[in-house]
Design a protein around this nucleic acid. Structure first.
Length: 585
RNA sequence: GCGAGCGUAGCACAAUGGAUAGUGUAGUGGCCUCCGAAGCCAUUGAUCUGGGUUCGAUUCCCAGCGCUCGCACCA
């Protein structure tokens, strides 16, 4: 019989069908299948408890009816038991475990089976989104790392994903910056580090404007000229942006990020008139204190807190461009879903934005995509304060990544001194960046995250290195036995798992599908991290308990199959998180 | 003031309304003539307070307390 990728979902369907044939009110019955505690089984159906209680029935009796109505294939694949007040427990039989492992024997097969949930859908993911003319700092890391993982998860579930870097390239800061750029550019400093020089120039312009009203006026004029399309200022502005984006690229390269588009705020400049017109025409927008704003009377706060979409001076702001951006993504990209990844402080803005977009699109009969604002907490130091350098400055992302790599290099040199230096450097690059990425991903994104080098790179517990170490050990076994993962002869000779450690590992492997679904549906990559960590733990326990390189060919084949499949799932899962893997470390 | 997020062992975290609340670290005690000990095994220790809904609440609702953040033209 065919083995489905997501066994829990398949059970859910079978239970619904059984409810009908058992004469239950099938429409009202929700099987509620979920991963069970391994002590109870692999999956459990909790749905009969609520169903029976609501109808004053005996839950155990209902469960028995339901189990009796299940097709024979379920009894062939699972040991089924009714337990406690009416839980139905399903424990996979060893032969079923083997069948699943055999059916999912390559990255292509995993991908093909996973890529049904969002087949044919288009999702736009807006992440990273730094301001130009500034360096990326630690605050930009979470958006980039979480956003990239979400892109990969959505792609794996079958969606076409459009990665859009919505850079802040059109702020009022450009007046002062252009003023200073024209007068105080240090060519040598610019050549050494353009972003550092832009930041210095902005500070020079800012200080000069503070000190001298004439300078302030000149800077204002520079901005007016820029916004009016003055060719010279436009050229300077374009140069600043081009240089900034080029300077970001090495960081994106290290994080494995490639954007499809970099449509910053300036891209929407010529579309704001349409936004004003349409929101005024639909009656959503109104004049208030000289500004054009949207109130939401049904909302406890936004009935009085305005969504300002045109300032009193007539200028647009980020509400305007975000409205235009939503429209562009719906009209031009035909997005079925939009995901914007920013920190939680922008929650109010996006709540107002999405309320407005929903009403606006409804009024114009535009097709409304799913709108998601993926938020994440602050990165703090051990005292819970925003993470800063010792002198109070922000921590630059490129320095942070360099330090991660340096720490990883020191560690690998200590643990694996026998490896050639070039390889230790290469390992440090993977472990260093991966540790930073993983530390960001492994924690539920809603909460603040305490940044601590020691926890991140110490390589114990739920860290990238622990997972990469498990992967490296599997590769090491294959090297030692002069074998290749997934070899046909070995796979064919593999028999069902037998020992407790083999069974625990196999049972964890088949739950990859559920972890993927959970992480993707909730847009929370930490569910996948948690799964991979547990998988690595089950593998390590298996590794310690059951030797692979034994003489008995049947036992060896059985265990090599488990090694090959663990490797496949680990490498696939880590790849979805945006991490690279190693064969030695 | 109004609103949002968060509150789980000493510390850092997990738990899609389910069974005895899981893990790491720190502590304690074991395991390398044996595939990589960056590992494995065992063990001590926790749901902010008070109500409510539910067969069942860390989870949902209400009220408090604490921390963080947001609230008229920055993004």
């Amino acid at each position: 019989m065919p083995v489905t990728f997501n066994l829990g979902e398949a059970l859910d369907s079978l239970l619904k069908a059984a409810a009908t044939s058992a004469g239950l009110e099938a429409a009202a019955f929700v099987p509620d299948v979920r991963i069970a505690d391994p002590r109870h089984g692999d999956f459990q159906a909790n749905g009969v408890l609520g169903y029976a209680k609501a109808r004053r029935l005996n839950p155990r009796a209902v469960a028995e009816q339901l189990v009796a109505a299940l097709p024979a294939e379920v009894a062939a694949d699972y040991t089924v038991a009714i337990a406690g007040p009416g839980f139905i427990n399903f424990t996979l039989k060893p032969a079923t475990l083997l069948a699943w492992l055999r059916a999912h024997d390559s990255a292509a097969h995993l991908r093909a089976n996973a890529a049904t949930a969002r087949h044919g859908q288009t999702w736009v993911v807006d992440y990273s989104s730094p301001n130009t003319a500034k360096q990326m700092h630690v605050g930009h890391l979470r958006s980039a790392v979480i956003g990239e993982a979400i892109c990969r998860l959505l792609e794996f579930s079958g969606a076409k994903v459009i990665r859009d870097n919505h850079v802040g390239d059109w702020g009022t800061q450009f007046g002062k910056l252009i003023w200073a750029y024209r007068r105080h550019l240090d060519a040598a400093a610019f050549a050494a580090d353009p972003l550092e020089e832009f930041e210095r120039l902005y500070q020079v312009g800012n200080a000069a404007a503070d000190a001298d009203p004439a300078v302030l006026e000149q800077a204002r004029q520079e901005l007016v000229k820029l916004q009016a399309g003055d060719p010279e200022n436009l050229a300077v502005w374009k140069h600043i942006n081009a240089v900034s984006l080029a300077a970001f690229q090495p960081i994106y390269d290290r994080l494995g990020i490639r954007f499809d588009h970099t449509l910053g705020e300036s891209f929407y400049n010529d579309q704001v008139e349409r936004i004003y017109r349409e929101l005024a025409a639909t009656g959503l927008a109104q004049e208030s204190q000289g500004a054009l704003v949207v109130f939401h009377p049904e909302h406890p706060r936004f009935k009085t807190q305005p969504f300002i979409m045109r300032k009193a001076d007539g200028a647009s702001n980020y509400a305007t461009t975000d409205l235009a951006t939503a429209l562009y993504r719906a009209e031009y990209f035909h997005a079925d879903g939009i995901v914007v990844v920013t920190d939680f402080r922008q929650a109010d803005h996006f709540e107002q934005l999405y309320l407005t977009v929903r009403k606006w699109f409804a009024a114009r009969s535009y097709r409304l995509p799913e709108l998601h604002h993926v938020t994440f907490g602050a990165v703090t130091d051990a005292d819970g304060k925003a993470l800063r350098t010792r002198d109070g400055g922000t921590i630059k992302l490129k320095e942070l990544l360099a330090e991660a790599e340096a720490r990883a290099y020191a560690l690998v040199s200590e643990r694996s001194a026998e490896l050639p230096e070039a390889e230790r450097r290469a390992i440090a690059a993977v472990v260093g960046v991966g540790s930073v990425q993983y530390a960001d991903l492994a924690q539920n994104r809603s909460s603040d995250y305490v940044f601590a080098w020691d926890k991140m790179i110490s390589l114990e517990g739920n860290t990238a290195a622990y997972l990469l170490y498990a992967v490296a050990r599997i590769h090491s076994i294959f090297r030692k036995l002069d074998a290749v993962p997934g070899e046909a002869a070995t796979e064919a000779a593999g028999t069902p798992p037998e020992t407790p450690a083999e069974l625990a590992l196999a049972r964890k492997l088949v739950k990859f599908a559920d972890a993927l679904r959970l992480a993707t549906d909730t847009l929370r990559p930490h569910f996948l991290c948690l799964y991979l960590y547990e998988l690595a733990g089950d593998y390590s326990a298996f590794y310690a308990a059951d030797k692979v390189a034994v003489d008995d060919p049947a036992v060896r084949a059985r265990r090599l199959l488990l090694c090959a499949r663990t490797l496949l799932v680990m490498e696939t899962g880590l790849g979805l998180l945006g991490l690279r893997t190693l064969t030695r470390m």
